[in-house]
Design a protein around this nucleic acid. Structure first.
Length: 668
DNA sequence: AGGCAATACTG
DNA sequence: CAGTAT
DNA sequence: GCCT
């Protein structure tokens, strides 16, 4: 224990050093942080509170935290009275910028208020991510509402009658899109008309056209309005019908401009009216290319068009695109046995044999087989997987062996090796990679238990010691609700920052819709990036033990504190469910601060998945771009001059000539 | 034969 | 710089 | 280990 404390001291000193570098205002909050012993853990705090022997500040803290806490202790959730719910709702609304009425509502009576809030929180994190939303998103949200109807109306509440009295006629849409928009509209209480007759109140179109004019002429009523699909989707997003006037119709435009020369800079900043450079979204993906060619940015396309066509043809092979295999996959998980064994090989190559590229191949094969929609029974079934096509491929042979014998000899031999066994276990410690693992094994440490029992003080780095301490806890998956809850705490902490407007996004597998996550990723948007470090420190002070906020103590350890990056450990102050007397599990938390400009690419990056990212970056690279978390650049540099402006994630896909893939479909 | 994503932080 | 992480 |  002493060793661990000493390391925490080291970290504390480093934090203090960083803080000293930052502004004076921050100094003030830092004082609060350091005012309490750093060793006070969330669990201790909780115990402290439960014995109700706390000092005034602690009681206050407790009282406050109760408002955001799952439910009031001693009562079952359903017994919680309306006042509690309203208070919860108010806190939630404040934290999320969501209408409190969405939580407190007639439909919500008798529903566990905590669940209602979590649902809204999820809704927030997925929906209000600041990116552009396709109608598919809205439609999906509608489906979720239907599914959730039996146990909670929290999400559906305000949208059900949003479009009451709206009768829409769609002009110039593909059948699929019109249907999607129509369904969304119907879910919001509106209706769709097949013909342009006098019952139509809203004509929906993307741009002026003769068909639009004709439709408007054949509707004989004064109050008919023409709107864009965005009116529907935006109204849904904001949970209120946006103002409709005859003037709000404007073709949906999108600017994908590289701001290097003065004229294009101008165009980029006044995106709304830069019609010359603007281009409609839904046109062919060639558009992005066309824009840049016609805008005098020809240098981007160093490769000739033939090359480009070739690349274009291989597009569906990139796992960041819904190729044939990815598309219909997923109803059930198949080929578990084969995939698990191949994954076993991958892990060994990665952690013990230090061959990341071989590892990647095995992992890719495993994942490809897992996501097939049928069970392979013969080696020839491998033909549908591109990377297993070649008859003499090694992995293909292994698959054959597994199909025939049910075993993989090579894997069993590797697993029998003591060094392999040790490296696999040791690499499970956060901060220990293949090299350290091997060196530890060479020094005579083969297991986590060995290290805990007899590792000398200076053997491990501070971060590794924390990894060791929470070895078992970090392996636990985190339920979605808990991810949402901790992310909410971060968001609330960020919202107490007064100097700049701040938005938070819960990303990672949470944003991809997963029921459980391995860690919690929170992305913070700071408009004035010069305040980024100050903001990050502010958030940390709020969440660390010894502070005065209701969230104080949620962060228990730091792994890394950078200027715009935080990696650490968090645990709930109290269990989510009242009847759960197990102490909360410690979780990995990442917080990253970005400026508004790089938000779309940062979202893209931290939403993952890993494989999706790598694939998309590879594609970008082949197109001559450079895709990073900080932005998309039109050449291999990251010079501001070559930055491709993006308002949302969709713009990034557009610019790269890729079809937009919503977060839930990035689980490749 | 050479590439396989691209970056931040630590010691 | 190598190592680990995202 | 697979792809170009």
């Amino acid at each position: 224990m002493d060793a661990l404390h000493a390391d925490e001291d080291t970290l504390a000193r480093r934090r203090a050093r960083r803080r000293r570098r930052s502004s004076e205002a921050d100094e003030a909050t830092a004082t609060l942080d350091l005012g309490a012993p750093m060793t006070l853990r969330a669990r201790d705090l909780d115990r402290f509170e439960r014995t109700s022997s706390g000092a005034t500040t602690s009681n206050e803290c407790h009282a406050k935290s109760r408002r955001i806490a799952p439910s009031t202790s001693g009562r079952s959730p359903s017994e919680m009275n309306t006042l509690d719910l309203e208070r919860n709702a108010a806190t939630f609304a404040n934290a999320f910028g969501v209408d409190a009425a969405a939580v407190v509502s007639p439909g919500n009576a008798g529903v566990d208020p905590y669940r209602a809030i979590v649902r809204c929180a999820e809704k927030f994190c997925i929906d209000r991510d600041g990116a552009e939303h396709s109608i598919e998103d809205v439609e999906r949200a509608g489906e979720e509402e239907d599914e959730a109807a039996d146990d909670s109306r929290a999400v559906a509440l305000t949208s059900a009658s949003l479009m009451e009295g709206v009768r829409a006629f769609f002009v110039n849409f593909t059948k699929k899109r019109a249907e999607a928009l129509g369904n969304a509209l119907i879910r919001m209480g509106g209706s769709v008309c097949e013909r342009a007759d006098d019952s139509v109140t809203h004509v929906v179109a993307c741009e002026e056209s003769s068909a639009l004019t004709k439709a408007l002429e054949s509707i004989d009523r004064e109050d008919v309005v023409k709107i864009t699909p965005e009116w529907i989707t935006e109204s849904y997003k904001q949970r209120r019908p946006l103002p409709v006037s005859a003037t709000n119709f404007e073709p949906r435009t999108r600017v994908a401009v590289i701001a290097d020369r003065p004229h294009s800079q101008e165009a980029a900043t006044s995106s709304g009216d830069s019609k010359a450079l603007a281009v409609r979204v839904r046109k062919e993906r060639e558009n992005a290319l066309a824009i840049r060619r016609s805008s005098g940015f020809g240098t981007i396309w160093t490769s000739d068009l033939a090359d480009n066509e070739k690349l274009e043809k291989s597009r569906s092979k990139f796992s960041c695109q819904p190729g044939e295999h990815n598309e219909k996959a997923m109803p059930i998980e198949c080929n578990t046995k084969v995939a698990d064994l191949l994954k076993g090989m991958a892990d060994i190559y990665e952690d013990a044999l230090r061959d990341q590229y071989r590892a990647k191949q095995y992992a890719a094969a495993a994942s490809a087989l897992r996501s097939l929609n049928f069970e392979i029974t013969s080696i020839n079934d491998c033909d549908v997987v591109p990377m297993l096509k070649k008859k003499d491929g090694k992995i293909r042979k292994y698959v054959g062996e597994i199909l025939n014998t049910g075993k993989l000899k090579a894997l069993e031999e590797l697993r029998a090796r003591p060094d392999v066994k040790a490296c696999l276990e040791l690499c499970g410690i956060h901060g220990v990679g293949p090299v350290t693992a091997r060196s530890l094994f060479a020094k005579g440490y083969a297991t986590v238990a060995d290290l805990r029992a007899r590792a000398p003080e200076n053997l491990l780095t501070p971060a590794q010691k924390i990894g060791l301490k929470y070895y078992e806890e970090f392996k636990e998956r985190i339920p979605r609700e808990e991810v949402g809850f901790i992310a909410t705490a971060v968001r609330e902490a960020a919202n107490t920052f007064q100097k700049d407007e701040v938005h938070c996004y819960c990303v990672g597998s949470f944003r991809r819709g997963k029921e459980t996550s391995g860690d919690i990723d929170v992305l913070v948007e700071c408009r004035d990036y010069s305040l980024a470090n100050e903001l990050l420190m502010h958030i940390l002070s709020d969440l660390r033990p010894g502070g005065t906020s209701p969230r104080s103590g949620i962060l228990t350890d730091d792994l890394l504190v950078g200027d715009h990056t935080y990696m650490g450990v968090a645990a709930l102050l109290k269990p989510l469910k009242d009847d759960d007397d197990k102490p909360p599990i410690h979780r990995r938390v990442d917080i990253k601060v970005y400026d508004s400009e790089s938000l779309p690419t940062a979202l893209l990056y931290f939403t993952g998945s890993d494989k999706f990212n790598r694939s998309m970056r590879l594609w970008a690279k082949k197109k001559g771009f450079n895709l990073q978390d900080k932005g998309l650049f039109a050449d291999r540099s990251q010079a501001q001059a070559s930055r491709v402006r993006a308002k949302g994630e969709e713009d990034v896909f557009d610019a790269l000539g890729l079809d937009y893939v919503p977060p839930e479909k990035r689980n490749v």
